[in-house]
């Protein structure tokens, strides 16, 4: 799995977004990705796997009193977006996602044929 910096010559340029920090862990059976998406309610989270591209998108939506003037903003855009390229041995049909308290956990298992296999050595 590698990060995909989108080409700028695409005809439809995605809207500007912040890059959420992620952790990616790989074990023998698959990959687990954790992403920080604070301020995104469950219904504003978008996950998409298309061919070998994984797109994580979220819209920030939190309670703001009317007429609030921003004095200082580190989360300066109301959107997160990050794209990864998945490798062939990952089974994109079996992606499982959990989302709570602004943290996304994605589990992408390796396809059965890509699972580690111990090769027995026969001694004649």
């Amino acid at each position: 799995m590698s990060e995909n910096v989108e080409k700028s010559n695409e005809s439809v340029r995605p809207e500007a977004g912040l890059l959420p920090p992620v952790n990616v862990v790989e074990d023998a059976n698959g990959i687990t990705l954790y992403a920080d998406l604070p301020g995104v309610p469950k219904d504003k989270l978008g996950l998409q796997v298309e061919a070998d591209t994984l797109t994580i998108e979220g819209e920030v939506s939190f309670m703001m009193p009317e007429g609030m003037e921003s004095l200082h903003a580190e989360v300066s855009l109301p959107r997160y977006r990050r794209v990864f390229t998945l490798s062939k041995e990952l089974d994109t049909e079996q992606v499982a996602a959990e989302f709570s308290n602004g943290v996304l956990k994605l589990r992408i298992p390796k396809a059965a044929h890509a699972q580690p296999r111990r090769i027995e050595i026969r001694v004649d």
């Binding site: 009193p65 009317e66 007429g67 200082h72």
Partner: peptide
Amino acid sequence: LRGGFPAMNVGSTPQSVEIYAFAPG
């Protein structure tokens, strides 16, 4: 001011000061 955890936004209205700390998980 920038670059710590949690990231922070601060806003102001005539009646209140609003602070948002982005501390997921």
